[in-house]
Design a protein around this nucleic acid. Sequence first.
RNA 1: GGCUAGGUGGCAGAAUGGUCAUGCAGCGGCCUGCAAAGCCGUCUAUGCCGGUUCGAUUCCGACCCUAGCCUCCA
Length: 469
Amino acid sequence: MLTIYNTLTGRKEPFRELVAGRVGMYVCGMTVYDHIHVGHARSQIAFDVVRRWLQACGYQVNYVRNITDIDDKIINRARELGEMVEALTARHIESMNEDFAALGIRPADHEPRATRFIPEIVAMISTLIAKGNAYVGESGDVLYSVSSFKAYGQLSGRKLADLRAGSRVEVDEKKRDPLDFVLWKRAKPGEPSWDSPWGLGRPGWHIECSAMAVALLGDSFDIHGGGMDLKFPHHENELAQSCAACDTPFVQVWMHNGFVRVNDEKMSKSLGNFFTVREVLPRLRPEVLRAFVLASHYRGPINYGEDNLRQADAALQRLYLALRDVLPAAGYEPGEATRRFTEAMNDDFSTPEALAAMQSLARELNVVKAAGDGPAASAYAAELRTLGAILGLLGERPEVWLATHSELTGAAESAAGRPEPAEIDRLVAARTKSRRTRNFAESDRIRDELAGHGVVLEDGPTGTSWRWQ
RNA sequence: GGCUAGGUGGCAGAAUGGUCAUGCAGCGGCCUGCAAAGCCGUCUAUGCCGGUUCGAUUCCGACCCUAGCCUCCA
């Protein structure tokens, strides 16, 4: 039985889908004005795994991940770069998709863009005005009236009075309530705009998600996910709009992932302490980043740093080493590892425990391998790869993975100074010759030399193989 | 100030009203010419103070500390 922690209720609850066998899921995606960073990657990996697990459980998942392609930041960035908004967003959507693919984050079933859903957005705003939940302010913007929705604050656990008392809420005289937020923003000259009953303008941030989610998943759906920082105000507002417009509970389960930290601080655009995925990937196998993310529970924080990445790499390498030289069987009888893995994933997607189960399975695999039990090893290998696939891991061939150099885990050797494979093969052959003549001083010298370049030698019954450390 | 989530071994990170995963690192052994890989064994932990209990790391309360949100942010 799958249980999921629901932000709305503050506890883990048994998951009950609205329509038997089907799950509608909406995850907040990217605002496309820059390359994605590790924090974004974490969030998308987390929900990618949620989706994969739901599918592994037999659900037919309708996965929607939006793209915010119009807002102030985009307009400002385009202006700074002297570029058209369309060109800027197209560029970054492409960049985002490349990064997602590298990290094994699968495309969503629907990837709606705000600018393609203007009619739906306008319609929802009209409904809100008609129902008395929204009004046209003095500035010409359309605003949502928070006091018109009595459950406002339920998701983030806040009371309107507390929020109003918050020292950082800016008082805007044009609003009836300082907490009212924009649904439709009137365009200033030169800004991209769309026609509406309230004049030329563009949608506010929150309304696009409401309108697109309802358009693609219906008035009420199963799971809505996003980063912790979206809980308030974004999801609170989204919830208020959608409930008021549709008179439905909107979302069954709200899920929020924790942050990536750098030196115990949130990695964020505003703090400037972020690493983009594309600057990090050249010296980090994408799968290592994925393993690093999954080594922690999705709701907790993770610290981005060399030590932790190295550990993730070592753990992953251990799994690949176990799989090396074993042909996975076509079928197998799921064992203790699968049972433990399943239980872990059913417990609010506890990927650290699931990975622990995989490590134990790798040990069993190593044992039967060493004992020369080929059929048992093949069965375990198949089981391990199946479990790995659910997490989007272990998709590579072991030999290929092990031959891939990772600067992080390798010697302090720059890419330029790294020896060529042909040169390594030559040295390995020379060492083998020395070993045959029992000239161990020379053979050890060669091994040390290679070790200095991050090359690890392994002597086996069929000869010597090498891999990058 | 309000709200939320946390504080577990050298590090990372699970779980649990009584026996505290898993990986890395360390130590001992097997294997090896020696190593590596692998296997076996093994050391170190539950922020602080009270309470409930036969027994709490786990439940309750206070305190301290950390992070996050309350403004754009995955």
